[in-house]
């Protein structure tokens, strides 16, 4: 990974954006990767079909936690339909396009949780 890109990811890991929970969230969803123990929970509030507020919490490696932080910045205020068409590639590009394929699972966990929250509308435990 180029050092600029690494700096960018480490900055999000050390100073996560939109970290926390939403009390009266419309959707909440939590999922992890059992093999590595990373867990991400997302709380969402929808207004006028737009993602009005998004907060995440969780634990895990720098890639998974920075990715979800970057993701929340990318999708906040976005129309729900646009969020649903946000692709894995969009996510990897938002990360600077330099994540090694070995770490794709970590990098895409946040997006997976976000889509499941919107599609399955499940509540986090």
């Amino acid at each position: 990974m180029e050092s600029d890109n690494l700096e960018f990811i480490l900055d999000h890991f050390k100073n996560p954006r939109n970290y926390g929970t939403i009390e009266d969230a419309d959707f909440s969803y939590e999922e992890g990767i059992p093999s590595c123990g990373d867990v991400i929970r997302l709380d969402l509030r929808i207004k006028n079909n737009k993602l009005d507020d998004i907060k995440f919490s969780g634990t895990g490696c720098a890639i998974s936690q920075a990715s979800v932080s970057i993701l929340t910045e990318s999708v906040e205020g976005m129309e729900v339909s646009k969020v649903l068409s946000f692709t894995d590639n969009d996510m990897l590009e938002a990360l600077g396009g330099q994540v090694s394929p070995i770490r794709f699972k970590c990098a895409l966990l946040g997006l997976t949780v976000l889509k499941k929250a919107l599609i399955e509308k499940k509540s986090a435990p």
Partner: peptide, 13 residues
């Protein structure tokens, strides 16, 4: 303060 996956990933580099 560092997840072992990050340690292993950066060692791999």
């Amino acid at each position: 303060g560092i997840h072992p996956h990050d340690v292993a990933g950066m060692l791999d580099e």
